[in-house]
Amino acid sequence: MNEPANGHQSVAIEARGVTKTFGTGDSAVAALKGVNLDVRFGELTMIVGPSGCGKTTFLSVLCGTMKFDGGSVQLFGRDLAAMRDAEVTAFRGKNVGFIFQQFNLIPTWSAVENASVPLLLAGASRQTAEAAAQRLLDEVGIGQKRRSYPTELSGGQQQRVAIARALVHEPRLIICDEPTASLDAASGHHVLELLQKIACRPDRCVIVVTHDSRIFSFADRIAEMEDGQVKAVHGRGEYHAQYV
């Protein structure tokens, strides 16, 4: 990794002038109005802002799950707009780990089965995938729940299974949309601790979209969005101070 001379980590994602409009004519909603953002390796970047300001839309664009209208997104040096659909899917499968607000664990699959999915999708054998999933379940502290089904787990436990699933294939980008919104304060805090402890590595970046001010303190950098644009980017501690 090229470490710039000024000490900043190298840039993993570079978004420039990204625009996205939903619908056409009178009902058109401009969700993104030229967003600029750099996401750096080794950092936990938070995207914060009021509801409806375009956070989820921007996140969807960044990880290649949604097409955008204008501007450019460089993801690990690749131009997202220039890639074919199948290419983006494969790229995502290899490089991105997802943690959703709604967990999105498949109810009829056990914890270990859910956590092994990204590896299975990449073509790994069941044995290899479940062994890796087991290691991560152990790491997030619910290894003994491997055979449990999502309905038998608490929200916090489910989100930990989701973290295991997001990390099992060693992706370079971890995407979390409102990971604490469905959890109580203690579980939310624990999830962020886990993310900070096991997800953050020098070769990886973590993006957390949230409007939960209780977890702002975990961020290395906070991008403040408002009305479809990034209004400001704050370093560790700066934004935190404003709110608390």
């Binding site: 799950t65 199948a86 494969a90 991105v96 997802f98 999708l121 699933r165």
Partner: peptide, 16 residues
Amino acid sequence: LRFMAALKAMGARTRT
């Protein structure tokens, strides 16, 4: 659909 979409997001190919 929601779960299939999640699999899709996680890189499941159309063939799969």
